[in-house]
Write a protein that binds this DNA or RNA. Structure first.
Length: 571
RNA sequence: GCCGACGUAGCUCAACGGUAGAGCAACGGUUUUGUAAACCGUAGGUUGCGGGUUCGAUUCCCAUCGUCGGCCCCA
């Protein structure tokens, strides 16, 4: 398997070279950036003032087909720095790359059909091997990934060894589009966005039911593990944010309001508010750990270009919690949090997740010693728990290092959900204390953590995960009752009342429509169960059950149906 | 924020310089219906918002807001 992965990478990298060759042949004035293979394909960056139109992409694709048909050999050649500089004399970006290569680096170029590119390789043998490829899109991308650099035109494409694999990939893209949460959110009437508040989601009744179900599950798991739920204010005065360090490190993402000649900030994070709760009482070593959970609605002024449905919004609810503990409790606490997060994911079928440890970022607060201590503590906790993890240098929060949970969904996509952040700085800044066994004040440690990350993003993820077909416990409408004709409405309402009495979410479709039509609509609305009731059912106290996934299950007594739902809900 | 594309009825789309059109949904009627779409009719839009060009703009130009695909960021 590993072998074939490498081949795919090589194939795509070579396809990127073919793309660059085609572009250079069509538009010789274009300057080359870089063109690597990426997870699902490849891209190549070009500097061209006019950009590329979809028609240009078609021409380029045709050019690539010719190059593939010519079956040109790729040849590798080692060159001296001087040779390289002369070959790429008209390619400023390549020259920059050459300049930045280590003194003793071996420079290589690859050539096919007169097109030469600076490249480490490897490549496939001949262009004819690029059998199945397609250019997908064009987008701006900063040279070397920095917004300080010029923006180049990036052409994305993908390539596979066989046409069948390419077709399957394109079908998969199509499938992913069908389950896009933005589309399903509209189709299923879950939420909306409006010009009046870009990036601020509006939860409709059905979406709110799903949201509340998630919260209910979250809440019961937390209270049973000793968390105490709190709520802190949405806006707090400027002084607090200076003290927390947000003013200096996070201000550009914050909203402010001026009232009574004071500046208030809308909270972008919940921690400073919770600090005040901790400080409101004298704490004993016996009180620790204290675990304050908060479904905190935070606002962050994200740049307009990054907004993306529910995945990236400007107001969201973190399933936050702050654990205040003694230094000797860090490991147990972190181990507990890891276990809790795992049990929350399990309910959604997310069993495949990986953990990453992120260390001190460039923009941060706190001393070197404190950071090292915090990073070591997290690492120790992970090692003791025997959990494998990768390290992301420089990716931590400004107040401390963190562990992130990345889950893989049913479509193989990865999402960052949970996070555990260890913080020695904030307790320092807020001068938090607890009285130890020795009767003297000591500094507690704070652990910030979230399991779902943001309820909004999580909703987006599970909408796509389930393609809108929520499991019974989450479904906005769990059961819809479909009376065959007007004369069955009373019986339908009677059955509905019995189900409602059981706490089930049920509705009755008594419209003047044919049963086939009502079933079709209920299927499109992805309602888990349909109960069809007519003369036969009414006379026997039964209901014909139709399940969303498996269709007609036949008639059964209403009690029996209720019992089976009870059973399904407790699994 | 940056690059590019796109905003037409509740939804999905058409018309692309000459008085804005379809399907679905909505509403009214007929039908009383048995496991994924009955039939007939009615209504619905200062074409995102603001300027400009033109005899005339949904169509061309400018600006602005929003959305989409990426980049930089990020829960």
């Amino acid at each position: 398997m590993a072998g074939s992965d490498v081949d795919l990478v090589t194939l795509r990298h070579s396809a990127a070279h073919v793309l660059a060759q085609a572009v250079k042949e069509l538009y010789p004035e274009v300057k080359l950036g870089i063109g690597p293979a990426i997870e699902d394909g490849f891209y190549y960056d070009f500097d061209r003032s006019e950009g590329f139109t979809p028609e240009d992409l078609e021409k380029i694709e045709a050019g690539m087909k010719k190059i593939v048909a010519a079956n040109l050999p790729f040849t590798r050649r080692e060159v001296t720095r001087e040779e390289a500089e002369s070959i790429f004399a008209n390619e400023p970006y390549k020259l920059e790359l050459i300049r930045d290569l280590a003194e003793d680096a071996v420079l290589t170029v690859y050539e096919q059909g007169g097109f030469v590119d600076l490249c480490r390789g490897p490549h496939i043998e001949r262009t004819g091997l690029v059998k199945a490829f397609k250019l997908l899109s064009v987008a701006g991308a900063y040279w070397r990934g920095s917004e300080k650099n010029p923006m180049l035109q990036r052409i994305y494409g993908t390539a596979f060894p066989k046409q069948k694999a390419l077709d399957e990939y394109l079908t998969r893209l199509e499938e992913a589009r069908k389950r896009d949460h933005r589309k399903l959110g509209k189709d299923l009437d879950l939420f909306s966005f409006h010009e009046e508040g870009p990036g601020f989601p509006f939860w409709h009744p059905k979406g709110t039911i799903v949201y509340n179900q998630i919260v209910e599950q979250w809440r019961s798991l937390h209270t049973s593990r000793g968390y105490q739920e709190v709520r802190t204010p949405m806006i707090l005065n400027e002084a607090l944010w200076h003290r927390s360090g947000h003013w200096d490190t996070y201000r550009e993402n914050m909203y402010f309001v001026d009232i009574d000649e004071q500046t208030y900030a809308v909270k972008p994070m919940n921690c400073p508010g919770v600090m005040l709760i901790y400080k409101d009482n004298l704490r004993s070593y016996r009180d620790l750990p204290m675990k304050f959970a908060e479904l905190g609605h935070v606002h962050r002024h994200e740049k307009s270009g990054v907004l993306h449905g529910l995945f990236r919004v400007r107001a969201f609810t973190q399933d936050d919690a702050h654990i205040f503990c003694r230094p000797d409790q860090i490991q147990t606490e972190i181990t507990d949090v890891i276990a809790l997060i795992g049990s929350i994911y399990e309910k959604y079928g997310f069993k495949d997740y990986r953990i990453e440890l992120s260390t001190r970022p460039a923009k941060s607060i706190g001393s070197e010693e404190v950071w090292t201590a915090a990073e070591n503590a997290l690492q120790e906790a992970l090692k003791t728990a025997g959990i494998a993890y990768a390290v992301n240098p420089g990716d931590g929060a400004f107040y401390g290092p963190k562990i992130d949970f990345h889950v893989r969904d049913s479509m193989g996509r990865s999402w960052q959900l949970g996070t555990i952040q260890l913080d020695f700085s904030m307790p320092e800044r807020f001068d938090l204390e607890y009285i130890g066994e020795d009767g003297k004040p000591h500094r507690p440690v704070m652990i910030h953590r979230a399991a779902l990350g943001s309820l909004e993003r999580f909703m987006g993820i599970i909408i796509e995960e389930y393609a809108g077909a929520f499991p019974l416990w989450l479904a906005p409408t769990q059961i819809i009752i479909l009376p065959i004709a007007d004369r069955h409405a009373d019986y339908a309402n009677e059955v509905a009342a019995r189900l409602k009495a059981e706490g089930l979410r049920v509705s009755v479709d008594s419209r003047n429509e044919k049963t086939g039509f009502k079933i079709r609509e209920a299927q499109i609305q992805k309602i888990p169960y349909m109960l069809i009731v007519g003369d036969r059912e009414a006379s026997e106290g039964k209901a014909s059950v139709r399940k969303r996934e498996s269709g007609d299950l036949g008639a059964m007594p209403v009690d029996e149906f209720i019992a089976s739902l009870r059973n399904e809900l407790t699994v």
